[in-house]
Design a binder for these strands. Structure first.
Lengths: 214, 214
DNA sequence: AATCTATTGTGAAGAATTTAACAAAATGCT
DNA sequence: AGCATTTTGTTAAATTCTTCACAATAGATT
């Protein structure tokens, strides 16, 4: 367990820091102050310092932060120094899109298997991975070390699948199904509810246009 | 403009309320108390009441909330009573997946056009929509009333496209490119940064496993 | 080497969000 | 019809999150 519990608000900001630090690294910039990063990212310098200090101070007074060091430390905090094998369940367009997304591989997320119940898709390949029938899932999970299951199937299928996944060693579910999954303690779920996101956009459009058309 | 500014934290919870209310409606349940909804959704009843009260009280004391009425009111708040035309820019797997997702249509998001710079894709169809070359985008936006642009292209392309979109009437961008977009005041952006989401998952896996393997 | 400058780390203030508590109001039972 | 029960709307308290402010410290300059 963590020394002190870090809030998910802070964790949620780390990937963005990492992205900007990666850009700086590519531009061969060696150091950066919280002030500079602040104006680059449009957040307060204070928040940046507070965020980093949750993990015990990566900077030096009078100097700032070393870009590469900071990048590496945040990577470690996010667990990107370990690699994670994943399977995709549901070989529709979304599943295929995620399977083809090479950037995940670079971060240590290794695409190991893909499953679908549609017989027409069985045997097709997404990158080097062959789509297998759902019946093979359980055995596959047992014979390989898979941490993450990516669920890109409709919600009806998703709920019933959770037990199978968890019983066969899945530690985390990246859930694209539009439903809340009920998992045992210790199994991580990260939801990507696309329609929720679209509704937020819709709200913000309406809000801005109110007064004009209402 | 809104009477009183509603926090994005509240807005972010509305789609989830809507989902649960939709389920209740389908089960022909007429009324629900904040207490019942609370145990269904795993949030506090107090938060539910506070959230709804931001918009001025949808319930009745001693009775609770009428499911259908509440559903309709939240729909309106989210702007789902208006329909929105959208185009998808980038006809890769992700773009196709979003184009094929019929649930958006049911919510009033109408798929009107799709664009890609890859000549091989031009002329293919996603549902009834033909993929057009990027050169046609500007004219298309001017000749049709498109509110939302969905960006499913790499970040390098995305940044340069913003001006074109905004100059031709786009009010909102649903951004899947892994970059922060700089838009004028009044243009809404909703980011879906998939790799950020995956990193959060990675963090939570590591955190839970710490102590065992570290 | 001494001084000046930049910039972090951090305690405290301020803001926002969430939860608790309860009076007011409507329902439904007898 | 009256009373007990339910459950909201709402005020207040507690908690969490963000920003401010500055002393401490390291680097840069002369």
């Amino acid at each position: 367990m963590q020394e002190k519990e870090i809030s998910q608000a802070v964790i949620g900001r780390l990937p963005r820091y990492l992205r900007y630090l990666g850009d700086l690294k590519e531009r061969n910039i060696e150091r950066i102050s919280s002030q500079e990063l602040s104006s680059l990212m449009n957040v307060t310098a204070s928040q940046i310092r507070q965020d980093f200090n949750n993990f015990g101070g990566f900077g030096q007074q009078g100097y700032g932060y070393n870009v590469e060091y900071l990048y590496d430390e945040i990577s470690k905090i996010l667990g990107l120094n370990h690699s994670h094998n994943f399977v995709i369940i549901g070989a529709g367009n979304l599943g295929k899109a995620l399977g083809n997304y090479l950037n995940f591989e670079r971060r240590g997320f290794i695409f190991k298997g893909m499953f679908d119940k549609n017989p027409e898709l069985i045997g097709q390949k997404v990158r080097d991975v062959e789509i297998k029938p759902m019946e093979d899932l359980e055995v596959f999970l047992r014979e390989n070390t898979i941490d993450i299951a990516v669920l890109t199937i409709p919600k009806t299928g998703a709920v019933g699948l959770v037990d199978t996944l968890v019983d066969n060693g899945i530690k985390a579910i990246w859930n694209f199904a539009h439903v809340d999954l009920d998992v045992p303690e210790g199994v991580q779920v990260e939801n990507v509810h696309l329609s929720d996101s679209l509704m937020k956009l819709s709200y913000n459009i309406s809000r801005y246009n109110d007064g004009k058309e209402n």
